[in-house]
């Protein structure tokens, strides 16, 4: 009897502690790491950057109450399918492999993939020049898939966040890293990235890179995908998108 009572009490406490709040706000998952100029947390704990601002505009347009939810980037898709978040807006490229797991909205920006390396090393973005080098990539990224496919003689080192790969590049533990060109331009322009320079864009491969970066949505919620698609189209049309982008970039980030 005692056990039953304790179990009942423990059960009800557990139920209470899980906070029976019904899901209302749409939880937007972002990578829990500094990824300037797209998303990074300031000392006050507020997230800001281009992607955060665009997210705000999209949510406003779609009349959604959105809540930023930082998740480990390499766990975003698992978190989406496990109902921990409702939408992914974390510079996630639309690829065939990922499309088997989740739905994507149309793209909302695109960025080429570049090789960034130590200034003292001569290399470009070709397989031949990278042979024998140590290349840092982020776990689960398109850059990792690309490097695995195209750079055969390269030693790959995988990081949970791109920020860690950048740190090891500065520390000299890796010779180069492959990543999105926009944040990397920011990185090499920073005081920390003085060691390194952009060595070049890798040859395109649509199969790996896909058409661009979109928001990820669970397959069971096509109506949410539609809503977001409509909102992206609307902010592209009404000038909101360009207004936000001008604050961060001096070129068209949407791409062709």
């Amino acid at each position: 009897m005692t056990i039953k009572k304790i179990a009942a009490i423990a059960g009800s406490l557990l139920a209470l502690s899980t906070g029976m709040v019904q899901a209302q706000a749409v939880k937007i998952g972002i990578g829990a790491e500094p990824y300037p100029p797209f998303s990074s947390a300031d000392a006050a704990g507020n997230w800001n950057g281009w992607e955060i601002d665009i997210m705000g505009a999209i949510c406003e347009e779609a009349k959604l109450e959105c809540k930023i939810t930082p998740v480990a980037w390499d766990g975003l898709i698992a978190a989406l399918n496990g109902n921990k978040i409702d939408v992914i807006m974390a510079s996630l490229s639309i690829t065939q492999e990922r499309s088997k797991q989740i739905d994507f909205t149309q793209k909302y920006y695109s960025t080429p993939s570049v090789i960034v390396g130590d200034k003292s090393l001569t290399m470009d973005a070709t397989p031949a020049s990278l042979e024998g080098k140590i290349l840092g990539v982020q776990m689960g990224s398109i850059h990792r898939s690309y490097a695995l496919k195209h750079f055969k003689g390269v030693e790959l080192k995988e990081y949970q966040t791109q920020d860690e790969a950048n740190q090891d590049l500065v520390a000299g533990r890796i010779d180069a890293t492959q990543a999105d060109s926009l944040p990397m331009s920011d990185f090499v322009a920073s005081s920390d990235g003085g060691c390194c320079e952009i060595k070049g864009e890798v040859a395109p491969d649509v199969e790996v890179f896909g058409p661009g970066i979109g928001a990820g949505v669970r397959k069971s919620q096509p109506e949410l995908t539609e809503k977001l698609n409509a909102a992206i189209k609307a902010i592209r049309a009404n000038g909101k998108y360009d207004e936000i982008s001008k604050r961060y970039f001096d070129f068209d980030i949407y791409g062709g």
Binding site: Q22, T69, K84
Partner: peptide, 14 residues
């Protein structure tokens, strides 16, 4: 029952 929103704090405690 309708689904509930389990935030990071509760999941962590759990």
């Amino acid at each position: 029952y309708p689904p509930i929103d389990i935030n990071g704090l509760v999941a962590g405690i759990f």
